[in-house]
């Protein structure tokens, strides 16, 4: 029996909610319980944006996460806000091409992923979210890489079908990245 609680946070437009959906679909495809909860309202218009995803082997009680097992910080305010909430022994992913400070916690594992840079090298600097998620998949057994292709099919809208390949490429690049 295991439950993984993930918070993804960054700027609006960084694909935060999309990444969360992708994770939720991967969990669902694996036959597990999932919940996805976004921040909403005017606060997300051009500002910070976050999303809570829970993947579990048992029915999920509260979808609200106080103490996440994984935090993905895509910008500095998100790192400041969520680093202190991370559970002891949790995993912290830092978008190091956009965040100028190091993590302060020493009771968690920190992964620095220069996601925007890697995305740019692979042809589209907007897809840092996919690079980070690729890296998350390599660092956590919560999201097996072999479920991601089927999941992304579900998440990507019909009019963005042409972006499937580039998204997969970014996920792979992130998966292979070792800091």
């Amino acid at each position: 029996m295991s439950t993984t609680k993930i918070i993804i946070a960054g700027f609006g437009g960084q694909g935060i909610l999309f990444t969360g959906k992708l994770m939720a679909y991967q969990g669902m495809i694996a036959g597990r319980y999932v919940s996805w909860l976004p921040s909403y309202g005017p606060e997300v218009r051009g500002g910070t944006c976050n999303c809570s995803v829970i993947v579990s082997d048992e029915p999920i009680g509260s979808p609200i996460i106080d103490s996440p097992d994984i935090v993905i910080a895509m910008n500095r305010p998100s790192l400041d806000k969520y680093e202190p909430t991370l559970a002891k022994g949790g995993k912290l992913f830092v978008e190091s091409s956009l965040i100028d400070r190091k993590a302060e916690r020493d009771d968690v594992t920190v992964y620095y992923v220069p996601a925007a840079e890697i995305a740019s090298e692979n042809g589209d600097n907007r897809l840092g979210n996919m690079v980070v998620h690729g890296n998350v998949m390599s660092r956590s057994d919560c999201f097996p890489f072999d479920t991601v292709a089927a999941a992304i099919e579900k998440v990507i809208s019909a009019r963005h079908r042409d972006l499937l390949d580039i998204n997969m490429k970014m996920l792979e690049a992130g998966y292979k990245y070792e800091s």
Partner: peptide
């Protein structure tokens, strides 16, 4: 409520 309205589940 806003949570159940906004959250996604299968």
């Amino acid at each position: 409520d806003g949570t159940i309205g906004q959250m996604m589940e299968p």
